[in-house]
């Protein structure tokens, strides 16, 4: 249980957070099914799994897609707990959603120690660049000051969606390696840690 945050080797729990209608479900759907469709507001949470095979390891992403609606916020807290990574999603055409993402970050910071969870700030809907309200630099700058990964995506046009998850996987593996060498251990035996990493 303790090690699950440090050794995201075979299973990696990712939670998608953000306001209503920023495209959390669409991002998950694009990544898992490589397809896009307009979706209705998510009810509660949805759970997806997706395997990612890298040279050094294969990672099973467990993706929690949460509802942006207020009444479900308290449920979302549940999925923070075991998460290895969080995607803070905002809509680049809606400044308010960017501000909400900052609030989500505050929540996460309350819940986790700084190196316990990998957080990525994701500005979605780059296909609607004409209506942009949040400049790329603004997102970038905020991510830099807070030490977050940053990415702008479009679930609709499939822009950088895979890259986002790939970056998360790489970063987690990197952290894991550092962690292991820091403790003077060999690189974690992925096969061995496969058992018992499930956190829920």
């Amino acid at each position: 249980q303790e090690g699950s945050h440090r050794l995201p080797s075979s299973q990696c729990m990712v939670v998608l957070l953000g306001s209503t209608s920023v495209g959390k479900s669409s991002l998950a759907y694009r990544y898992v099914k490589n397809d896009f469709r307009d979706s209705l507001p998510t009810v509660g949470c949805s759970f997806f799994t997706q395997m990612l095979n890298l040279e050094v390891a294969s990672i099973k992403f467990e993706i929690w897609d949460t509802a942006g609606q207020e009444k479900y916020h308290s449920v979302c807290h549940l999925y923070y707990r075991g998460a290895h990574a969080a995607l803070l999603v905002y809509d680049i055409t809606n400044k308010e959603t960017f501000n909400r993402a900052k609030l989500w970050l505050r929540d996460l910071e309350k819940e986790f120690l700084p190196d316990e969870i990998l957080i990525a700030l994701v500005g979605n809907k780059t296909d609607l660049a004409g209506e942009r309200e949040v400049a790329t630099e603004e997102g970038e700058e905020f991510a830099r000051t807070k030490g977050l990964l940053f990415m702008e995506t479009s679930a609709k046009s499939s822009h950088q969606v895979n890259d986002t998850f790939m970056a998360i996987a790489q970063e987690l593996l990197q952290r894991e390696r550092e962690e292991a060498s820091h403790h003077g251990l060999l690189t974690a035996d992925l096969e061995e840690s496969r058992t018992g990493t499930r956190c829920c």
Binding site: A28, V32, T42, G44, C45, S46, V75
Partner: peptide, 18 residues
Amino acid sequence: NLISSSSSFREGEAWTPI
């Protein structure tokens, strides 16, 4: 009614308070 009113259940597994 909940199930028939949302297409989002078609994908993945939903977990919702009710």
